[in-house]
Simulated assay, not measured.
Amino acid sequence: MAVFTAVNDADLAGFLTHYSLGAVLDFRGIASGIENSNFFLTTERGDYVLTIFEKLTARELPFYLDLMQHLAGHRVPVPDPVVRDDARLFGELHGKPATIVTKLTGRPELAPNAHHCAEVGQMLARMHLAGRDFAASQPNLRSLPWWEHVVPEIAPFVEGDTHRMLLEELAHQRAFFASADYASLPGGPCHCDLFRDNVLFAHGSDEGGDRLGGFFDFYFAGTDKWLFDLAVTVNDWCVDLATGELDETRANALVRAYQTVRPLGDAETRHWRDMLRAAAYRFWVSRLYDFHKPRAAEMLKAHDPGHFERILADRIGSASVGSLS
């Protein structure tokens, strides 16, 4: 999240005329992230998040908001879009689609242990199963077709082993995506970006441990293979940030908890390494693109492409990452 589009008091007042949320008590921008303009909003009715979509169009947006509403209705803890007085889930600010969603409680756990990973794994599986009867479908917009489009644009910026890995991994993923095994993998609506900073925990709960508060930031969601969503999550929650290597204790806790809700099939088990590589490649390509072709923003924290380059290199070369416990 970031602020690319500024919102003044008059802008906000005009937008809120379409909602029944009462008087504004607090409004401020959110600095983290790189895709949309986001603001914390507190009114007489409660705490919310206002998002202005910098890339998503009004035609694309209903998939994400309807999915969040669907999951919230199935008791998956996600932000629930606030319905406007005209029954719509979004409007327009500065010529761009914008929405208000409920704000979850808790804060991100940026140094997770096995308990946190198990909580995330179990809820991720619940989310996947809850999405089975979601009627809409939209591809993951940062999958293979996008890689094929942007890799030629960023390849001239890198050289040596980095350039070679960028092109060789694209070829590997093309072959994997074209395989019969890939086609057989189960899937449905996926978060596709379930990093540590997109999950909240209520710390020191009455139950004696940190309790998962919910998943948020669904604006990279898409219809994809559930194994891809699991791999994206493991690659962030269970990684040594300095080396990119998997922490086996955390990875086993997350995957085992996931499988208590949705056991993995044989093809998923066979292609775990391939999907870990796909998940790492997706974010490496994205970060290379954002680094070499940046956009201006009032508040922006760039992400290091080298982090996912190290993760991908480990998933390709490590002998242990292909197994599932």
Rank of each mutant, 00 (worst) to 15 (best):
Phe53Ala: 05
Leu41Pro: 05
Ser37Lys: 00
Glu44Ile: 01
Leu50His: 03
Gly14Asp: 12
Asp47Met: 08
Asp26Leu: 05
Gly33Glu: 02
Glu44Val: 08
Ile34Ser: 09
Thr17Ala: 14
Phe40Thr: 12
Leu25Arg: 15
Ser32Tyr: 11
Ile30Cys: 05
Asp47Gly: 02
Tyr48Glu: 07
Phe40Ala: 13
Phe39Asn: 03
Thr43Tyr: 02
Arg28Gly: 13
Gly29His: 05
Gly14Gln: 13
Phe40Met: 12
Val49Gly: 02
Ser20Asn: 14
Leu25Pro: 00
Asp26Cys: 04
Val24Pro: 08
Leu50Cys: 07
Thr43Glu: 04
Thr17Cys: 08
Thr17Gly: 11
Thr17Met: 09
His18Thr: 12
Leu25Cys: 06
Leu25Ser: 10
Gly46Thr: 11
Leu21Phe: 08
Glu44Met: 04
Ser37Thr: 08
Arg28Gln: 14
Ile52Lys: 10
Phe15Thr: 09
Val24Arg: 10
Phe53Cys: 06
Leu41Asp: 06
Asp26Lys: 14
Leu50Val: 09
Arg45Glu: 12
Thr42Met: 02
Phe39Ala: 09
Ser20Phe: 00
Ala23Ser: 15
Val24Cys: 12
Asp47Glu: 15
Phe27Thr: 12
Arg45Tyr: 00
Leu16His: 01
Gly33Val: 06
Ile34Met: 13
His18Gln: 13
Ser20Tyr: 00
Asp47Pro: 00
Ala13Gln: 15
Ser37Asn: 02
Val49Gln: 00
Thr42Val: 13
Phe15Val: 09
Ala13Gly: 12
Gly14Tyr: 03
Leu16Glu: 03
Asn38Glu: 06
Val49Trp: 00
Leu21Glu: 04
Glu35Arg: 10
Val24Gln: 11
Asp26Met: 03
Thr51Tyr: 03
Asp47Asn: 15
Glu44Leu: 06
Ser37Ile: 02
Tyr48Val: 10
Val49Ser: 01
Val49Lys: 01
Asn36Phe: 01
Phe15Pro: 08
Thr43Gln: 03
Ala23Ile: 07
Asn38His: 04
Ile30Gly: 01
Ile30Tyr: 01
Tyr19Pro: 04
Tyr48Leu: 10
Leu25Lys: 15
His18Lys: 13
Phe53Asn: 04
Ser37Pro: 03
Leu21Trp: 05
Gly29Thr: 08
Ser20Val: 01
Asn36Gly: 00
Phe27Pro: 10
Gly46Ala: 12
Asn38Leu: 08
Phe27Ser: 11
Leu16Lys: 07
Leu50Glu: 03
Leu41Tyr: 07
Leu41Lys: 09
Glu44Gly: 13
Phe15Cys: 12
Gly33Trp: 03
Thr51Asn: 02
Val24His: 08
Gly46Trp: 10
Phe53Tyr: 15
Leu21Cys: 08
Gly46Phe: 08
Leu50Met: 14
Phe40Gln: 04
Ser37Met: 04
Arg45Ala: 14
Ala31Trp: 00
Ile30Leu: 15
Ala23Gly: 12
Ile52Gln: 10
Leu41Glu: 07
Asn38Gln: 09
Tyr48Phe: 15
Asn36Thr: 03
Gly14Val: 06
Asp26Ile: 05
Leu50Gln: 07
